[in-house]
């Protein structure tokens, strides 16, 4: 929750987006609980960023998902698909009820995003490290075809261990793609990670400052933001569009599992089945308490 919206950001808009982020969390926890499959920690950490992107930043037309002049968005950390689906459903790409088909057979909402099935997905992802390369292609393509569309790519911090991320970072800087914005959901946890004296005996995917130093060394313009402070996110993303000949990396400091008390900061909530009593706590944490006596509607 942001305490004081900056003067340049409309307070009402911040409230609206915070409520949307809350609804994204509610819907994604419901869908994962219903499917008995899927990821939780990563989608929850990205919910505020997704709300800002889909409801404020991206120039898109949900009723015309293939609109050629739209901005592009790629969820490079494709395992957080359910967060993206929730944002897209709330934005009007498809009915919110369809979220309950997540991971079911014949669903358009595949475990990892499949652009051949769901209109509005700009790229298929799920194998980490690839989205940023495709995003670079879109940014380059926009330039070559004379479009002013921007391309936003959301990566995980664990994902930034993939060599391909740095191949894309190198090449995008070479091409001076200032219409490309990489947002790193820096929640300080990956799936399992290195053993050490961090929480639950695992340590973060990077040491403090490492991501900023790396993207800077690859000649990107780097900005840091609290990825749960809506006003700050809006300010940073507005500024990210101001081209100076360099691609932009937004390092968003987040908490894995954000919004659900018992998931926050624990690597093992990366993906795990929710027990009925846990589901009830999660819903209460997210401001949507279940009617008393009701467990998980599986």
């Amino acid at each position: 929750m942001s305490t004081q919206p900056a003067a340049d950001v409309d307070a009402g808009e911040v409230d609206r987006l915070e409520e949307i982020a809350r609804r994204i969390r509610v819907e994604l926890v419901r869908a994962v609980n219903h499917a008995r499959a899927g990821h939780l920690g990563g989608p929850l950490s990205a919910a505020d960023l997704l709300a800002a992107l889909y409801f404020h930043v991206l120039r898109i037309r949900p009723e015309d998902p293939d609109w050629p002049d739209r901005d592009r968005f790629i969820l490079s950390k494709g395992h957080s698909s359910i967060g993206l689906y929730a944002a897209m459903a709330l934005r009007g790409y498809f009915p919110v009820e369809e979220l309950m088909t997540f991971d079911a057979a014949h669903s358009r909402l595949q475990g990892h995003p499949d652009m051949t099935r769901l209109p509005g997905l700009d790229m298929s992802t799920g194998s980490l490290g690839m989205g940023i390369s495709a995003g670079m292609g879109m940014a380059l393509g926009a330039r070559l075809t004379g479009r002013d569309s921007r391309t936003y790519v959301l990566l995980g911090d664990g994902e930034c261990q993939e060599g391909e991320v740095w191949e894309a970072a190198m090449a995008a800087a070479r091409h001076g793609l200032d219409n490309l914005v990489a947002i790193v959901d820096h929640n300080k946890l990956q799936q399992y990670g290195w053993p050490g004296d961090g929480p639950d005996g695992r340590i973060p995917p990077q040491v403090p400052g490492e991501l900023v130093a790396k993207w800077t060394a690859f000649r990107w313009r780097v900005v840091e933001v609290d990825g749960h402070d809506m006003a700050a996110i809006l300010r940073v993303l507005a500024e990210a569009g101001r081209g100076d000949g360099r691609p932009v990396a937004v390092i968003a400091h987040t908490v894995k599992g954000k919004g659900v008390s018992f998931m926050e900061g624990h690597y093992f909530w990366h993906t795990r089945a929710i027990k009925p009593e846990e589901f009830a706590i999660a819903m209460a944490d997210l401001g949507e308490p279940l009617p008393t006596g009701q467990g998980a509607p599986a």
Partner: peptide, 8 residues
Amino acid sequence: TGQTGMSH
């Protein structure tokens, strides 16, 4: 594969 999709 734990309900993942074509990437997995």
